[in-house]
Amino acid sequence: MIKIIDLKKSFQGRDVLDGVNLTIEKGKITVIIGRSGEGKSVLIKHIIGLMKPDSGRILIDGDDMTALRERELNEVRKRFGMLFQGAALFDSMTVAENIGFPLVEHTNLDDEEVLKIVGEKLRRVGLEGVESLMPAQLSGGMKKRVGLARAIVMDPEIVLFDEPTSELDPVMSDSIADLVLETQQALHTTYAVITHDITLAYKIADRIAMLHGGRIIEEGSVEEMKSNENPIVRQFLEGRAQGPLKAY
């Protein structure tokens, strides 16, 4: 379970996170929605310790991520997987080397065992026979799949998703959504997803939280959010240009 308590972060005088409070429950998919530039990525980068907050705490099963030293932080990070927006595959490595990277770095498995696990994970994300391709040879959807395979290769307890469907067509987006659901249900992993893709949120979320103005303004199950009366939430979920949110 991840508990975020009063998290604050500002960049050059602008408060991006202004007291975020959120609980991400174990074994569930929590989707954090919000407009672009509202600091969703900043929030997720805080969870995995890529950024240090100005104040506030992030508790992972009771351990305060913000107070840990680099070495301890790395131990906690090994329990995480993360899928980046652009998949962040290493350009200089093949697909197999990318997926196997955490294994090579953190385990004593030999090459054959690593290859076996890589093949297994690739099959899980619906790909086969792409081990020796380079990332540049993959389509956007395939990159995301490979990224997901790398995120789950260490069988992490928590997986973070940064815009898993960005830059994908609706059909591809839906297949990724299916994949997220499948992988989560198979292992009952804790998933935290940030997105502005409402379709994706409705499809996969156990709980939805909306980030606005540096705070979580509303939070609840899909049904609760659908019936939420907050005009900001309504406007965002319905995708209207008119309303309290300004499109500029």
Binding site: I48, N74, G86
Partner: peptide
């Protein structure tokens, strides 16, 4: 690598 978040990816995989 920095701009495509590959360096961040290294950090999240607990690799300095």
């Amino acid at each position: 690598m920095r701009l495509t978040e590959q360096i961040d990816a290294l950090v999240t995989m607990a690799v300095n």
